[in-house]
């Protein structure tokens, strides 16, 4: 019973952590690579506004980063903690 819970715990952690890590690394490095390779695209304005794609993407990233931390805390409390209590 104990080993089963432990294995379940590790698998669950992987299922939660890997996708979140993937989202963060991809979105951040796509930002960095866009800056390096396609700065012109980032400087274009969105429709008729004075806000560029770069600024919009930057602000989106700030919210995404915060959102990922919230998701992780929520999932950990909801899914991981009950198993930890059992062990």
């Amino acid at each position: 019973m104990f080993m089963k819970d432990y294995e379940k715990l590790i698998n669950l952690k992987k299922i939660i952590i890997y996708p979140l890590l993937f989202i963060i690394i991809c979105s951040y490095f796509s930002f960095i690579l866009l800056i390096a390779y396609y700065p012109n695209w980032l400087s274009q304005k969105i429709f008729d506004s004075s806000i560029s794609y770069g600024i919009a993407y930057g602000f989106f990233l700030i919210f995404l980063i915060f959102f990922v931390t919230l998701v992780y805390v929520y999932l950990s409390n909801k899914l991981i903690e009950p198993i930890l209590k059992r062990i």
Binding site: I17, L21, I24, F31, G58, I62, I65, T69, Y72
Partner: peptide, 17 residues
Amino acid sequence: LIYSIGFLVGWPIVLLI
């Protein structure tokens, strides 16, 4: 903004691993 985001993106890394 590039700097700010770089400093911020360290945090989910700290949290997740």
